[in-house]
């Protein structure tokens, strides 16, 4: 760690989080695992910033460094203008952190957990009630219940309430929607949007690619690297190759047939369609249809815009 660098972020009131060349490795007896390899990015105040990537991408390690629970091997980072190593006490007062694993006190009731975290931060539930009202009202009927006896969705809402109780300026949410069904996921993102109204900066990680579109900007992460940072739209628009969706009656056979064609670059199943890229990027719809007609005359072929997941897979190949 070098401490003699200019700390520009402290002077920039528009930047909530600044990460500069962060590296982190974990050593075991037999191997060295690189969790983060030269990570740099900035998050603006009031932004919802997504870290999108599968398990092992380094998302949790990055969260632990930014919430001052772990020290990087190299590089610098600032949260709310404070440097993460020297000013960790300041940062801990200002950030909310919801880890991926439920980490509240199972033997305390809902209201006892809230009171406990409020006391730690020298505040009360009432003081910032406007902020957590919509979330807390959903768990209020169970306020006398022990946290350990709550359902998964209720635990999540309690954890979010506790992470917000001191009105943090930056909120870190590590995979809040993993293992959560499609409806509850939608509802959780609606809650996040409401928090944004209060000016809180939110950094949220998820392995679900479709959630990227709900963020203002995202970093696509894989194996300790950031492959791309942009707005969701900027990312999908950076997919320059023509992309085709193809459908037939027997989708598994269709995939095998498509992959057997010489002209094919990639073919991936995407729900009810296969997404196909040809080696020749100048193909028109007529070209595409003609080549695919050697498989079957009864195919639905359309040119489509790329999704975040198409872009993620394309970046993984590089």
């Amino acid at each position: 760690m070098t401490y003699n660098k200019q700390r520009t972020a402290t002077n920039d009131s528009m930047i909530a989080v600044k990460v500069h060349n962060i590296k982190k490795t974990f050593k075991t007896e037999k191997s060295i695992v690189t969790a983060l390899e030269d990570i740099s990015f900035e998050v603006n105040r009031g932004e919802v910033f997504g870290l999108i990537g599968p398990d092992g991408a380094g998302k949790t390690t990055l969260f632990r460094i930014l919430t001052t629970l772990m020290i990087a091997d190299a590089g610098d980072a600032w949260v709310d203008g404070f440097e993460v190593v020297n000013k960790y006490k300041e940062i801990r007062k200002r950030v909310g952190y919801m880890p991926g694993r439920f980490s509240l006190y199972q033997d305390l009731t809902v209201e006892e957990n809230l009171a406990f975290f409020a006391t730690l931060f020298n505040t009360t539930l009432e003081e910032n009630y406007d902020l957590i009202k919509t979330i807390y009202q959903q768990i209020e009927p169970f306020k006398k219940r022990r946290a350990g006896a709550l359902s998964g969705g209720m635990k999540q809402k309690l954890a979010l309430s506790c992470a917000l109780i001191h009105r943090p300026s930056v909120l870190f949410l590590d995979e809040p929607t993993t293992g959560v069904d499609a409806v509850s996921r939608k509802e959780f993102w609606e809650l996040l949007r409401q928090l944004q109204i209060h000016g809180i900066t939110i950094i949220v990680s998820t392995p679900y690619m479709d959630e990227a579109s709900l963020c203002d900007r995202v970093a696509l992460m894989q194996e300790g690297r950031i492959m791309q940072i942009n707005s969701p739209r900027g990312i999908t628009e950076s997919f320059k190759k023509p992309l085709w969706s193809v459908r037939s009656g027997n989708m598994y056979q269709l995939m095998l047939d498509i992959l057997a064609l010489d002209a094919i670059d990639t073919c991936y199943p995407f729900g009810q369609y296969h997404h196909v890229v040809f080696k020749d990027e100048t193909y028109s719809l007529e070209n595409a249809k003609q080549i695919l007609s050697t498989i079957s005359s009864d195919l639905e072929v359309k040119q489509i815009p790329a999704t975040i997941e198409d872009c993620f897979m394309e970046l993984m190949r590089k």
Partner: peptide, 12 residues
Amino acid sequence: EPTGGVDPVTRR
């Protein structure tokens, strides 16, 4: 839930 947390290529 065999594919939870798995990257999109491996998922396929």
